[in-house]
């Protein structure tokens, strides 16, 4: 019967985790216990055997198959955002049912009116592309994101950490909020500097995002983690103010900055 402590030491030895003293202790034990010595030899052989199994190359078409499945099953993330906004819009229409009818009627009248003014679109008329010439420029390689700024803000019972990263064309704000759920978070920025592009959160609830040209607001934002992506319009320093509110009362705010980038 091998002592429990030496079974552990045997496995740790095989994994290369024993200290010099532990290895020496084990060697001394193995020299006096034939059963333990056999056990060690077997575990070592087993480990070598497993380690000798090579990784198998996946089939050549696997990558294509994976990417196709993504294209089929999921719309692009931009489309996700559009559908999320559409869903939010439909939700608001549900709330204001009376406006929904007025809107739908107006939309129908507008479409009919426009098509009449335009003379209607000719059915199945194809545009000739024979006169179009030229080359398309390939999009350049996407630069790795640079770290810009990071810091904490908060009050007694709510803490937040903000990290700004980005590239020449992109600004990424990672926001982690710890504390009461009743905290609202606002990000304020100049609309000439950045434009809001996409949003994701670790916990799906709450779904309470409000977007304006120069701000993004998340209601009941506590105990969650967010990633907000903006398209960058300005190459100068871009300040983003992050504020925490509770019942519209400001708890804390701080300005974070993304460094200027070359033109």
């Amino acid at each position: 019967m091998i002592e429990e402590r030496y079974i552990t030491l045997i496995h740790r030895e095989v994994d290369g985790l024993n200290s010099a003293e532990e290895s020496s202790d084990l060697r001394s034990y193995l020299s006096h216990d034939a059963g333990a010595s056999d056990y060690y030899r077997d575990i070592l052989k087993l480990s070598n055997m497993l380690g000798a199994v090579p990784l198998v190359e996946p089939p050549l078409n696997l990558k294509k198959r994976i990417l196709n499945s993504i294209a089929v099953h999921l719309p692009s993330r931009r489309q996700n955002l559009v559908s999320a906004m559409a869903a939010q819009f439909v939700q608001s229409l549900r709330i204001h049912k009376s406006y929904a009818f007025v809107f739908a009627s107006g939309l129908a009248i507008g479409i009919i009116g426009f098509s009449l003014l335009d003379g209607g679109s000719p059915p199945n008329q194809r545009e000739s592309i024979s006169h179009i010439s030229g080359t398309m420029t390939r999009p350049g390689p996407f630069p790795a994101l640079m770290f810009y700024d990071q810091g904490d803000l908060g009050a007694a019972d709510v803490r937040g950490q903000v990290t700004l990263r980005g590239s020449r064309d992109l600004l990424l704000v990672e926001l982690q909020v710890k504390g009461g759920r009743d905290v609202d978070v606002a990000l304020d920025f100049a609309q000439d500097d950045v434009g809001f592009s996409s949003f994701s959160q670790q916990n799906p609830e709450p779904d309470n995002l409000r977007m304006e040209p120069n701000s993004v607001r998340v209601g009941n934002a506590g105990e969650n983690q967010y990633t907000l992506i903006f398209s960058r319009k300005s190459h100068n320093v871009v300040p983003v103010k992050v504020s925490f509110y509770r019942f519209s009362k400001l708890l804390s705010d701080r300005v974070f900055s993304a460094a200027a980038v070359s033109e």
Binding site: K63, L67, R77, R78, F142, R165, L170, S197, S198, T227
Partner: peptide, 17 residues
């Protein structure tokens, strides 16, 4: 990951690779 989240499908292709 950031690039994929920003809508760059090529970035996810690299993750797959």
């Amino acid at each position: 990951v950031c690039r994929t989240l920003a809508g760059d499908r090529r970035a996810f292709e690299q993750i797959v690779e």
